[in-house]
Simulated assay, not measured.
Amino acid sequence: MRRSLSAALALTIFGAAPAMAALRLCNQSFDVLNIAMAEPREGGFITRGWWRVAPNQCATLERELLRSRYYYVFASDIFGREALAGSIPMCVATQRFEIEGQEDCLLRGYLDARFLEVDTQEQDNWTVFVSPRPQ
């Protein structure tokens, strides 16, 4: 009786937890990275940043159920060099930000950055890995 009660308690604590939906980024490079992300919203995009991710660490960029197949990520090292090669232009700021709309970034006082398109294949969870740059 005691053994079955212990097993049931362990299952309740460890085994029955619901899976958490998230978009994560893991830094496998040798540099500290600054991360921004963008997602589609009502006919446009919203960008958010910054997350600082140390080498061999991960950050959760979106904690809710992924609503879109495509998300966009920008990563740079602490010297401002791009760590992901993207081609989608979107707005970022120098400090923590949330920007709606991606047109006329410079005219609106923002910086222009090239984001990488991430295809989540319509999964609830997705992890982006940033590898070291080729030398």
Rank of each mutant, 00 (worst) to 15 (best):
E100V: 10
Q135M: 09
A19S: 11
F74I: 06
C105L: 08
Q123V: 05
A83W: 02
N34L: 14
T47M: 02
E42A: 15
F30W: 01
S87T: 13
G43V: 13
N125E: 13
L107F: 04
F115K: 05
C91G: 01
T94R: 10
R81S: 06
A16R: 11
D104K: 14
G109N: 06
N34P: 00
D31L: 12
G86P: 02
L116S: 08
E117V: 15
R52K: 10
A8F: 13
N34S: 12
G101L: 08
E100Q: 09
L106P: 00
L65G: 03
V32I: 11
W126K: 08
C91W: 03
A38D: 00
S87A: 13
G86T: 12
F45D: 00
S76R: 08
L61V: 12
V128A: 04
A16P: 00
V73T: 06
N125D: 05
S6M: 12
L33N: 00
A21H: 03
G86D: 05
A7T: 07
V128N: 00
R114L: 14
T60A: 03
R67Y: 09
T94M: 06
T94V: 13
E117R: 15
I78Q: 05
L106W: 03
A59K: 13
M1L: 11
G80M: 12
F79G: 01
M20T: 10
T12N: 01
A83M: 11
L23Y: 02
G49Y: 02
F79H: 06
L9G: 03
W50K: 05
I46F: 06
T120F: 05
L11E: 00
R96N: 12
P18C: 13
Y110V: 10
G15T: 10
L9F: 05
I78A: 07
G109D: 04
E64Q: 11
F45M: 14
M90Q: 00
G86Y: 07
